Amino acid sequence: MSNFSEERLYKVLLAPVISEKSTFVADKHEQVVFRVLRDATKPEIRAAVEKLFDVQVESVQVSNRKGKVKRFGRTIGRRDHEKKAFVCLKPGQEINFQALEAK
């Protein structure tokens, strides 16, 4: 964990993903889903989650999603690409986002 700068670890996690699928995954597999930087690595993500939320991480899976092509009249654009991390916590560990919001 000491291999990564503390400043970098605070930037790796962008936001938790709160959706129907992510809550299903959280209940069934004890995983939490985060949007992360596109150049973040699995060890960086693991270190960031362990440092910020004071939990133990069992494994990390990542998913790269290509941005959709969208049109607005004649103009064609593209949404940004996105990387999501599915962080599997060790048994008995959990992250409560509502308690963190209250602080």
Rank of each mutant, 00 (worst) to 15 (best):
K28M: 07
R65I: 14
V60I: 14
G73Y: 04
L13I: 06
H81L: 00
A47I: 02
T75V: 07
E50T: 00
G67Y: 01
Q93H: 09
Y10A: 05
A40G: 15
A99L: 07
E50N: 02
H29W: 12
K42M: 04
L37Y: 00
K84A: 00
S63W: 08
I45R: 12
V60Y: 09
V57S: 02
M1L: 09
K11P: 04
V57D: 00
F34D: 10
V25E: 11
I18L: 15
E58N: 00
S22L: 07
E7W: 06
L13E: 09
A40V: 02
F86W: 14
P91D: 01
C88P: 00
K42L: 12
V25P: 01
L9I: 03
D39P: 04
V69H: 03
T23S: 09
G67E: 05
E7A: 07
G77E: 04
E6G: 00
G67I: 06
A85Q: 01
V32W: 08
L9E: 06
N3H: 09
L52H: 12
E7V: 05
G67A: 12
N3Q: 08
S59D: 11
Y10D: 11
F86Q: 05
D27Q: 12
R74C: 10
R8M: 14
G73Q: 05
H29D: 10
G67Q: 07
R71A: 11
K83D: 10
E20I: 06
R79S: 14
D27G: 10
A15Y: 03
K68D: 01
E94I: 08
E20F: 05
E58K: 10
V87W: 07
H29K: 14
V55D: 14
L52W: 09
Q31T: 12
S63N: 08
K51D: 04
K51N: 09
V12K: 00
N3D: 09
P43C: 02
Y10V: 00
K51W: 00
F53C: 05
K70M: 13
V25Y: 15
P16L: 06
I95S: 06
V69W: 01
R35Q: 09
L37I: 01
G67R: 02
A15H: 10
Q93S: 10
I76Q: 11
V25Q: 14
K21P: 02
A40K: 07
E94W: 06
N3C: 03
L37D: 10
E30L: 15
S22W: 06
D27N: 12
L89Q: 14
R8Q: 02
K68F: 07
D39R: 14
F34N: 15
V60G: 13
T75D: 10
L13N: 01
F34C: 06
F53E: 10
G67N: 03
E20V: 04
A40H: 08
G92F: 15
F53W: 13
V32E: 06
R35P: 04
V55H: 14
Q98D: 12
V17F: 11
E7G: 03
Y10E: 05
V60A: 05
R71Q: 13
V55E: 00
L14R: 07
V33S: 13
